[in-house]
């Protein structure tokens, strides 16, 4: 079962943090089809957060078709996000490593690398939308 955590300083709203943690776990294969998610009561008792926050996160995941609530039983994963893409991770990570070492050789420090990645990532995302 997945265990949620919250980063109060991240600037990302708590409900979105929960949504992302489930998606992340699905992508990494930590959660699979049929796995149960913790109940709303369990999550709020652990994190000391508003129950509506958890309900909102679960509703969004349900809307995306990733989980389904079975009344009286619990909430279960209905789809996995890993399948084909997980197999590609190894190769992509290898390429990314090589890119990172080239960036370092070129004299970029951690912050510059992160900035370059994020600006490129955003620019590419914007081009995709346009």
């Amino acid at each position: 079962m997945i265990e949620f955590h919250l980063d109060a300083r991240s600037g990302v709203s708590p409900y979105l943090q929960l949504v992302r943690q489930v998606r992340q776990a699905l992508r990494l294969g930590l959660l699979r089809e049929g796995d149960q998610l913790p109940t709303v009561k369990d999550v709020v008792a652990r994190l000391a957060i508003n129950p509506n926050t958890v309900l909102k996160a679960y509703r969004e995941l349900e809307h995306e078709g990733l989980i389904a609530a079975r009344p009286g039983v619990g909430t279960f994963v209905t789809r996995t996000l890993s399948d084909a893409s997980l197999a590609a991770h190894g190769h992509l990570r290898h390429e990314l490593r090589r890119w990172l070492s080239r960036a370092r050789q070129a004299g970029l420090d951690d912050e510059s690398i992160e900035a370059l990645f994020m600006t490129t990532f955003r620019a590419a995302a914007e081009e995709d939308i346009a």
Binding site: A8, P14, K41, V44, A45, R46, L47, A48, I49, N50
Partner: peptide, 28 residues
Amino acid sequence: LQGLMEAAAEYELSVLLSSHLVTDVERV
């Protein structure tokens, strides 16, 4: 706060609480 939120979830309680700790308020 964990106990309070657990009770709120279990019994569908409405809660009205005063605090001068904004971080707590933000959380719950």
